[in-house]
Amino acid sequence: MSKRNSDLIAGITSLLIAAIFWSQGLKLGTESNLLPKVLEYFIIIAGLGVLVRGFLRGKDVQGSHEEKEGLNWTRAIVIIIATIVYVICIAYIGFYVSTVLYLLLGSWYLNEKGFTLSSLVFSLVFGVGVSGILYATFTVFLQVPTPTGLLF
């Protein structure tokens, strides 16, 4: 991403967040809203600064080192969506079942050999194994409650 775009996006995002908090704080008393107000002012001024800096920058300035290493967007987005689905599933089928499924499917999708049977078996062992370790540590040893769903 060019430094210009990075500045523009960062500026707009921070202005947006400040605006959301601003609108939420309209009904608050002065005492409650004192620090938030100060912060909102600051973010708006600094955000505008970043935005203006972005506009002033030339288009060709290349920045950000991360970009060069290359991020596989498909994989990243699949994992983000899978995680969201995973969290929703916890509410229905419980933590441990969802975790086994998430670990199994997630690692099967991500592993380098592709969707082969042997990697599926490996992922299954991995999923059950890790869930087992989590169960042993959290539920048996520490007795910390885990999220529960309809089934478990």
Partner: peptide, 30 residues
């Protein structure tokens, strides 16, 4: 990485929940 990645996510979920037994915290984490 494929394996450690998903395992970290599972650990993050249970860790966020364990703080005060609340799914809100898991959503906050995501």
């Amino acid at each position: 990485t494929p394996y450690i990645g998903v395992a970290i996510v599972a650990l993050s979920v249970i860790g966020s929940y364990a703080i005060r037994n609340s799914m809100i915290d898991v959503i906050v984490m995501i």
